[in-house]
Amino acid sequence: MNTRFTTQRIYTRSNGMRNTFGNFVCLYCHNFVSAETAISGVHNRNHCPYCLSSRHLDLFEAGDRLSACKARMKPVALTLKHSIRKYARPGDGELMLVHVCEECGKVSINRIAADDVNEQVLGVLRASGALESGLRRVLAENGITPLAMADWPAVMRRLFGLN
């Protein structure tokens, strides 16, 4: 078979398995995770708030559930989302978690949820100082600038509102 099945269907997009943003038990830390918006503050619960792990389930767009990889996506760094505001200053964006698939290396950035354990988020920032150069290059290719320890005050401000 020579055809590569890699084309996204947009015009005939189906609902697929979209209704899968529900409660779940984390496959890695085995904690129960509620997908209630009132608890998480986000509509699409896409990682465990306790260990911050995610799963590689989407292929073309969030919620399409078309990926067959299904491996763990490990939190490797924090970054700031590029702000869409016209007069935004550098570093004005929202704090995001950077996930990398342990099997296929797919990179994605996800919003921090309200109930994410802050110690874990800060732990990711500390550990990201030792990111290997290959991974740094992949992040750069995806337009992601990982935060460093120098950005600690900015992270604290976003997590706790402290100056």
């Binding site: 099945f5 890699t6 067959a68």
Partner: peptide, 15 residues
């Protein structure tokens, strides 16, 4: 699943 990831099987057919 490996074949889907490799593009040998359509992800839509797998779904």
């Amino acid at each position: 699943r490996r074949a889907v990831n490799a593009g040998e099987i359509s992800p839509y057919r797998y779904q």
